[in-house]
Design a protein around this nucleic acid. Sequence first.
DNA 1: AATTATACAAACAGATACGTATGTTAAAAT
DNA 2: ATTTTAACATACGTATCTGTTTGTATAATT
Lengths: 213, 213
Amino acid sequence: MRRTKAEAEETRNSILSAAERVFFEKGVSTASLDDVAKAAGVTRGAIYWHFSNKTDLFLELYNTVNLPLEDMIERDVEQPAADVLCYIEKSAGDWLDELAADEHRQRIFTILLRCPYGDDLLPVLEKQQEVDERHTVMLDSAFDRARNAGFLSGNWTPQSATKALRWMMEGLCSEWLLFGRRFDLAMEGKEGLKRLFDSFRQLPAITEAPAAS
Amino acid sequence: MRRTKAEAEETRNSILSAAERVFFEKGVSTASLDDVAKAAGVTRGAIYWHFSNKTDLFLELYNTVNLPLEDMIERDVEQPAADVLCYIEKSAGDWLDELAADEHRQRIFTILLRCPYGDDLLPVLEKQQEVDERHTVMLDSAFDRARNAGFLSGNWTPQSATKALRWMMEGLCSEWLLFGRRFDLAMEGKEGLKRLFDSFRQLPAITEAPAAS
DNA sequence: AATTATACAAACAGATACGTATGTTAAAAT
DNA sequence: ATTTTAACATACGTATCTGTTTGTATAATT
């Protein structure tokens, strides 16, 4: 029963959608292609027509979303130095809002967190690391501008602020995604961000009074 | 070839040790019992003699180590309020040192992070959550004592400090363990802790001068 | 209108992996 | 000295998953 091109694209998408749900529920390695086929209402024949194997299916699924941090990078473009910290904080908070509201991204992110990065999924890991690297570089330079303009507390260096922010975000999301969403990600996350950024902004208490430069 | 009791205990331990390495390298779900048996220099018969199946083997392996946070809990016992913050910081730093030096714990922790908590491994997940819960409660009360004694910055509440610390530790360890140990865990981790705890300790800059109470 | 290529389903073959059943040796128990 | 039983190895049957092949109805092409 040959389908029209539009119909074929539909089944392809339904396979991807089913794979997302099945991989999320059973894990990538334990889920079989038959599980995915049944969830999509097709047979394995359809999957092997559209994709070459499970790894390829996973990679295609992985390409349907931009990575967790990827769009956060684009957001933090050049801003006036006075607003950089607020802007980064807002950007991170918005990103949490989006994640909390988008189950699709939640599933993808969860799958990525606990997928066994062995052997064949190396390209995924490499892309992840490249995105992380770009995000780190961007944050570093943003915090550096804030610091040069005198808006970063002496307690923090650009690098340490970047790491603290990234670790908090990663820990926050890991706990929420991997361990059953037992708290309000957006609310608690943004409160944590607020405290952390307050400490970024807080100028030293005891040191020299601002001399005219 | 019947072995003596001591020899049997040896093979049991070698199976556990092999399982640790194999699960770490191939992932729990993709590793077969034959892989484990070969790595241990025995056959599957030995495994089925000592353990009832793969899940049971995993649970036994899981019981051989105290959990990542478990011993950190015991450490943070009652301390004079003036030293509480320093004590927690040191305790967390020590724990990072130990993790960085102990490949055994690294592997177990890594396995736990990316194992598919579906279906049969629920007891593992539940124990994890219970340990996390106890750790959180302990940190809350410790930060609370620090705060009541005036040693916690007004920027932070006990709860927010607890969460910030836990998220930072979790993000730090996740990035290090899941993504190839590409930095010095103990050094960078302790520097991050130092910055964070400095911000915990830093009293507000502008607010009222300490009035006699 | 006849042909061809597409989009699958169904059937097939090979490889694991699991659980169990059975065999075997030597340590304990008697 | 037998007997028993612990500690495995070996062999077996079965289920499952994978990749491929074959069949087939129907769009698309000419």
